[in-house]
């Protein structure tokens, strides 16, 4: 028996690597559950029930997946062109802020019109927030990992100021939150008596759209080429700087859209706990999906399921809900291992 390098990785293996990674993540985390003294199978049973065990659970999981799909796409698109966008969290809040500024009564339009304007505003705000680091990268070779990451804190602190000051809702009993959106700015619910909103459809369409762009358009080809080898891309006549700039508008825009959707679909007013780190989790989603836009949907639903299910697990068995973070992190680590292993094959003589 020998181990040898594959020249190409077949599709079935690319698809089964994440499955194996997820299985291994659960397997390795079962040790932690044993440590807390709970029965492993019962705990995972509770997690599964909490994630997909009932129509309500499923709707909760999908609701949670909406921002994750969009931030995952935001990261995946940028990473594909080797624009290291660590700032999806800031872009998320930027999008939410823009939607909140226009949606609290300043703009009165009939329902679908206002929603579209607000989503677009979120897109533009998020896109511009990534456009700035991308522009600095193309003009002055400023490392975008640093700028996008640090911009997150600038935006969060900026919004924190706004919510304590000019944007504070006087009716919120002193809580730092923005005024409620007008009725016509809200996204409709998809299923009555659940929280699943039309943002889910938007997220799915966005994934399809990104997939189509990457697969069928010249821009997809340009982004792949720039990501794979910028020097060759430049020599071959691809406008590398332009590609980086429009990638930033696309990627940042998707993260901004995530913020706007979460605001319009779920929360209805701007607060600082709008995102429990959706922007950062988006990085995990993108990597778990191997940057494939359709894979992002699956990865986002999985991660959302783990988080939602962990609440049930915590409630029914007393296992700490932090375990969800551990499972997601372990899945990412195992994913890296499985992707490495998928490049090899065993051969029996």
């Amino acid at each position: 028996m020998r181990v040898e390098l594959r020249s190409t990785v077949p599709l079935w293996l690319i698809l089964s690597a994440p499955m194996a990674a997820i299985a291994l993540a659960f397997l390795s985390c079962s040790l932690l559950i044993l440590w807390t003294g709970s029965p492993v199978l019962a705990a995972y049973g509770a997690l599964l029930r909490g994630a997909v065990g009932s129509p309500f659970a499923l709707s909760e999981t999908l609701t949670r997946a909406v921002p994750l799909i969009l931030t995952g796409l935001a990261v995946a698109v940028c990473f594909r062109a080797k624009l290291w966008n660590i700032g999806a969290e800031g872009q998320f809040y930027g999008g939410a802020l823009a939607a909140s500024l226009l949606g609290t009564g300043e703009l009165s339009l009939p329902r679908p019109g206002l929603v579209l304007v607000l989503l677009l505003a979120g897109w533009i705000a998020g896109g511009l927030l990534l456009w700035i680091p991308a522009w600095l990268k193309t003009q002055f070779q400023v490392d975008e990992v640093v700028t996008t990451l640090l911009l997150n804190f600038v935006i969060l602190l900026g919004i924190s100021y706004l919510l304590e000051g000019p944007l504070k809702d006087p009716l919120a009993l002193g809580w730092p939150q923005g005024r409620a959106l007008v009725e016509s700015a809200l996204l409709p619910r998809l299923i009555p008596r659940s929280r699943l909103h039309a943002g889910f459809i938007i997220a799915l369409l966005a994934a399809l759209g990104v997939w189509a762009i990457e697969q069928f358009t010249v821009w997809g080809l340009e982004m792949r080429a720039v990501g794979a080898n910028p020097e060759a891309a430049k020599f071959l006549g691809i406008p590398v700087q332009g590609v980086i700039l429009y990638t930033s508008l696309l990627g940042g825009g998707l993260a901004g859209l995530a913020g706007a959707c979460e605001l319009l679909g779920l929360k209805g007013y701007l607060t600082l706990d709008l995102s429990p780190g959706f922007g950062y989790t988006g990085i995990v989603v993108a990597l778990l999906a191997q940057l494939h836009p359709l894979g992002v949907v699956g990865a986002a639903v999985f991660i959302a399921g783990v988080y939602v299910g962990a609440d049930t697990m915590g409630r029914s068995l007393g296992v700490p809900t932090y375990l969800a973070d551990v499972i997601v992190a372990a899945a990412l680590l195992w994913m890296l291992v499985c992707m490495g292993l998928a490049r090899y094959r065993l051969r029996w003589d």
């Binding site: 010249v218 080809l221 080429a225 794979a228 060759a232 071959l236 006549g237 691809i238």
Partner: peptide, 21 residues
């Protein structure tokens, strides 16, 4: 390797890369 071709892209992509527009 460095400028003539983009190694991880496919044959067709490398073939059309100067004229896809």
């Amino acid at each position: 390797h460095k400028t003539g071709l983009i190694g991880s892209l496919s044959l067709w992509e490398n073939w059309v890369i100067e004229r896809y527009r």
